[in-house]
Computed example of a mutant assay.
Amino acid sequence: MTFSEILRKENEDLFQLIFEHPFVQGIGRGDVPKEALAHYIKADYEYLNAFMHIYGIAISKSAERKDIAYFNQQIEFVLNSEVHPHHNFCQQIGVNYEALQGYPLPPTADHYVKHMMYHAHTGGMGEILAALLPCPWTYWEIGLELMKQYEPDENHPFYTWISFYANLRVEAVTMNMRNRLDELAEAASPEERQRMKEAFRKSCQLELGFWEMAYTCEEWPAGNPAAIR
């Protein structure tokens, strides 16, 4: 069993909780509350900006050109491709994409970004990949699960979103990251492998928390800290 297969097995509980979350199931049914969709887009836009910055940190730590090329490709994917599922949500709530950009991260998304930043700055390449991997991996499997469970066609309100994440390109993103993590895990010490496992599980927990954050329209208690001067 490869290292990434072990990670998937050890985190089956969290993957299932994500698949069963009411926001995710609402995408499958086509009936997510508009407020939740807007809150998701606001947070995910800034989260993906941070994700690209973390890819940049990974490039700065890359000793091999294949890693530099991979992370460069991933920045392009986030920058130019992941806007399409966002636009699908925007169309359903009748709000321009630009109107949902530039908002401060809610608490859970803020925690998630800082968790990944911590591993990017203090960890090696394997640790960085382990912290990043649950994002594409859970979304790819969400797409597959919703395709299987609901069999949406082009008339489904979230067909664009579901089909985007169920497609071969997101699978390739996931598998490329998994394969590189497996290579690094082979050469890692037991302590490094344990840090990879911990980074991966916390990211899975925060993926679940992100869906809950969006569904409940989570805000900072007593106002956003960024607004305090």
Rank of each mutant, 00 (worst) to 15 (best):
H21W: 00
S4A: 02
Y47A: 06
N167G: 15
W161V: 11
W220G: 03
E5C: 06
I18H: 04
F89C: 12
S4W: 04
L79W: 11
R193N: 12
Q25W: 02
A166K: 07
I41F: 06
G124T: 12
I142V: 15
W140Y: 15
R201G: 04
E191K: 09
I162E: 13
R169H: 12
L48T: 01
S4M: 03
I41H: 00
Y215T: 02
K9P: 02
L17K: 04
H84I: 15
L208R: 02
A63V: 12
H53W: 07
L184S: 07
A38R: 14
A222G: 07
Q92S: 13
I162V: 15
F23M: 14
M117V: 12
I27G: 01
H119F: 15
F164V: 03
C217T: 03
L48K: 02
I57K: 11
Y165C: 06
F164T: 05
G26L: 05
W140I: 03
L208I: 05
S62Q: 13
K197F: 12
I162R: 13
E5A: 10
E12R: 11
E98S: 15
P85N: 11
V24T: 09
N179H: 13
E191M: 02
F200K: 06
N224T: 09
E76W: 06
G30V: 03
T122D: 09
K114I: 07
N88V: 14
G143E: 05
F71S: 07
K42D: 01
V24S: 06
C135D: 04
M196C: 12
L100T: 08
A185L: 06
L37S: 13
E127S: 05
P152A: 12
N176A: 00
E219W: 11
P33H: 09
E154Y: 11
F164L: 07
A188P: 02
P225A: 07
A199P: 01
E10Q: 09
H115A: 09
L100I: 11
G126L: 08
E82P: 06
M125F: 10
Y139V: 03
E186V: 15
E218R: 05
Q101I: 14
D13T: 05
Q205P: 00
R193F: 11
T2L: 03
A166E: 10
H119M: 12
D31C: 14
A58K: 04
V24Y: 03
G94R: 08
S163F: 09
W140C: 00
A58P: 08
Q16T: 07
A50P: 05
A99N: 14
M1I: 09
E10I: 04
L184F: 13
I27R: 06
E98G: 10
A38Q: 15
T160D: 15
E192P: 04
